[in-house]
Design a protein around this nucleic acid. Sequence first.
DNA 1: AGCGGTGGTAGTAAATTGAAACCACCGTGA
DNA 2: TCACGGTGGTTTCAATTTACTACCACCGCT
Lengths: 151, 151
Amino acid sequence: MEATSTKPATGCPVARTVDVLGDKWSLLIIRDAFDGVRRFGQFQRNLGVAKNILSARLRTLVGAGVLLSEPASDGSSYREYVLTDAGRELFDLIVTLRQWGEAHAFEPGEEYVPLIDGVTGEPLAKLTYVRPDGSPVRADGTHLGEPRRMP
Amino acid sequence: MEATSTKPATGCPVARTVDVLGDKWSLLIIRDAFDGVRRFGQFQRNLGVAKNILSARLRTLVGAGVLLSEPASDGSSYREYVLTDAGRELFDLIVTLRQWGEAHAFEPGEEYVPLIDGVTGEPLAKLTYVRPDGSPVRADGTHLGEPRRMP
DNA sequence: AGCGGTGGTAGTAAATTGAAACCACCGTGA
DNA sequence: TCACGGTGGTTTCAATTTACTACCACCGCT
């Protein structure tokens, strides 16, 4: 998909992430993976995406370390795609997309599919981001810093 | 961009969000907007995107209620694009993209641009999502529910 | 051996993107 | 006042990507 030299190598973590999964299908694949989808055909029917595109996306996601292509699971010698540790850390991203959509992409009275919180049994409440000490973070309390080296 | 009838109207909030801003440029535009970018040319130079594409994306984002096209701000009778309330609520999304990128899209020792937490003066720590009562949420503690109506 | 389901690839048409040219308007300075 | 550079676009056209439709190989079953 790209040669090894064609990257300006952005330095902005947002851009890096967007480069890997900043497209419609990749995000929906991740969503489905969290919902338990593992098999090629399952993704394909579920998303209605062309098979070659799905094939390409899965390969990209595997290459990016988000998915892992495992040889089996239910006996049949077929392949299946499961989230890696890095992939499972995208849960926050999917939840964020979901919560914004719930708040801003529906009309009142419209039907939607909620995510149920296993603890309460109710649709997941509006979540907030907090620091390790429990204090919430607000947009206007942050700003870009000087470039640093990754530890 | 689309006729009013071409929508299967997904019901999945993730898909709804992805439909609006599930593409590279839209996400980077939002990121820049949070960094204080307001003007067309500023976005254009900053992102290196073609002007017609930028124009189209800005129009889509304005149409989706994420950005607002205001007539002025610094005196000059030029236009500028600012985040709406709905747009400002995408802060969590940008932060999530950023944090995943920081954790998984850099080699050790590589340079990156951190987001500074105004409270601590240090790079923003790894954030966690918590319920209104302060308890954290985990991926395997949730599952899809039956369709419901928006209140 | 035949048959249906799964997991793809190949070929081609349609849509999207990207680069460059063009253009109107604003503000400044001579 | 009127030329000139900067801003904020639109238009045009080529190149890339996506989507759709075959097609194919393999597996498991009868």
